[in-house]
Nucleic acid binder design. Structure first.
Lengths: 334, 334
DNA sequence: CTGAAAGCGCTTACAG
DNA sequence: CTGAAAGCGCTTACAG
């Protein structure tokens, strides 16, 4: 910018005015400056600008895994809102590693992002307190933060599962197996709670042998299926799966079980938490409790921008609804 | 940092030394400084650091759509490599809008990213020339850049299609329909070229009525299917689909066509360019020519870091292989 | 082992 | 309408 000023024979400040379209510059002077900009190939350094202005017009997004369609759809929606405000977005995946999440979050804060959207991992987000205190806006998504008071956007997990279980109960199922993710994960805990509460409210007993909770591995799910469907004296006639990764693994294992002729006479009814691509094209189509990841992302981004715009708002907790989409698998009778 | 220095009673430079773990600081002094850092909740401003040092340790990634599994998997792989080098990554989606891509790319450059990975849209990337000249490393992915000489990572589209078509020819198919994306898109053009070349090399004539190229809409694909499969005097016995979005739409339309009883007696054989989730769980499983998006991303990131590390390398063009995965749909006989 | 000065490339606050 | 000075928060280059 200095070089441009020298080349145009004006002061630095005048170049700044032209570059930023500030009013009150003589058109002829402005033209001279633009000529110099062109000739030198000048491009404003937004890093320097940022340093002086005190905000960076950038936000960070930290998810479990950007390659997972749920998170990538969410992130894309955040991008969209950010673009509207002229903000750029950093992204980072941390899987289920709390330490990696922390490193990413602090790295984003060191770059002085104005805000951060984060799917919290681990049981303590207190490390973000100084950052938030220093002015970084934070919105927690999909799971609430622990030990820290901040905006969050959650899904009505309990209500979603309730819809699915009631759907199965209404069709006469009484032996409904539940296969969920590791119980440390907030959503996994909420969802299995929805299962228990719905059965109890309907006057049924909980049979622990019909519940399996673990990170989804083929062997673990295979074992759970064999226990619930084959070796039980009164096998499950229906399954509820706690997320789409589990659903897909269950479908693969069911197909193998059927092919292996191990005595699975009828495919159990199935309702899945989470919608997924091609669920409608399978035979039968998979009935799901759909979340809306784009809406989750949009809502989080809107909360974030509201908070960045200032004011002393008290933390907000939004809970988004789910939708049951019947496609066949959840309508099978016992 | 100034405040820390004052609180610790040392010079700014000493604080800088402690913060950056530079050697040659008296342990007692260092301890005093660390105490002040703790007390004041000091966190280094990486923006200022960046301004002084001349590089930002960040890169930008621009894809068509982060919500698309192909691009999100690619981006996740880039993230992984970046993390290894201690770099942060900006992401942006531009769909097929060249102007939005340009804005994003220039915004990243204004933030002085050290490098940029980009799936080019539009027919001219010359606008990036000054940026590259100014030192931004650039790697083009999935499609080559136009009017600019830079590293690129492509896929062997022609070879991939050849494998698929030969697979169908070997099973006796002679009427093979091709449904591809808009021909302006580089990969779409390459793939249909692979189709033509393979048929010609095998001594067959090209029948234009068996080729449909357009952005995938349900109606367009429905019309193409009706033309190729129903109203033709000698209908296609096999289809090759140019990408997974098209494949999925074709599958939906085939299912509807079958259900509607419009005279589709047998489902044609099908080979798809691009693998996709659940392709193995459909009935029949979908035979695909698989790309490896994670490998594409990793390769691009490695090229980028190689280039950022300097040297005066001439532009490299990598072409990654594809893999045919037979799953049933491509093995059906005419 | 420690520090004073200059400078990265901008914007802010002010003066003319 | 234009500009000179100070400063954002660091690191570089140098001196002691």
């Amino acid at each position: 910018m200095n070089d441009v000023a020298a080349a145009a024979g004006v002061a630095l400040k005048t170049v700044s005015r032209v570059v930023n379209d500030e009013p009150g510059v003589n058109p002829a002077t402005a033209e001279k400056v633009r000529g110099a900009i062109e000739a030198l190939g000048f491009r404003r350094n937004d890093g320097a600008r940022t340093l002086r202005r005190g905000h960076t017009s950038s936000i960070g997004v930290i998810v479990r895994d950007l390659a997972d369609p749920f998170y990538s759809t969410l992130t894309r929606a955040v991008e969209e809102v950010a673009l509207t405000h002229g903000f750029l977005v950093f992204t980072g995946s941390c899987d289920e590693s709390a330490s990696r999440q922390r490193e990413l979050a602090l790295a984003f804060c060191a770059r002085r992002v104005d805000g951060i959207i984060i799917v919290p991992v681990g049981d303590d987000q207190r490390y973000l307190e100084p950052e938030i205190h220093a002015g970084v806006a934070a919105v927690f998504v999909d799971r609430p933060a622990t030990n820290i008071d901040a905006d969050s956007v959650l899904v009505d997990n309990v209500g979603g599962v309730r819809k699915g279980i009631e759907h199965l109960l209404a069709r006469g199922h009484r032996r409904i197996g539940y296969i969920g993710d590791a119980p440390e994960i907030f959503t996994a805990g909420e969802r299995v709670r929805g299962y228990r509460e719905t059965l109890t409210a309907a006057g049924h007993l909980i049979d622990p042998s019909l519940i399996a909770m673990a990170s989804p591995s083929r062997q673990g799910i295979r074992a759970a299926l064999e226990r619930m469907l084959l070796s039980s004296p009164s096998p499950a006639t229906a399954l509820f799966t706690g997320n789409s990764r589990i659903t897909v693994t269950v479908l693969r294992e069911l197909a193998e079980l059927e092919a292996s002729g191990q005595g699975l006479e009828r495919r159990p009814a199935l309702v899945s938490f989470d919608d997924f691509d091609l669920a409608d094209l399978l035979t039968p189509g998979v009935t799901v409790i759909a979340q809306d990841p784009a809406r989750i992302g949009r809502t989080a981004a809107e909360l974030l921008f509201r908070r960045m715009e200032g004011g002393n708002l008290s933390p907000v907790r939004r809970e988004l609804p789910t939708r049951l989409i019947p496609r066949g698998s959840g309508e099978a009778l016992p």
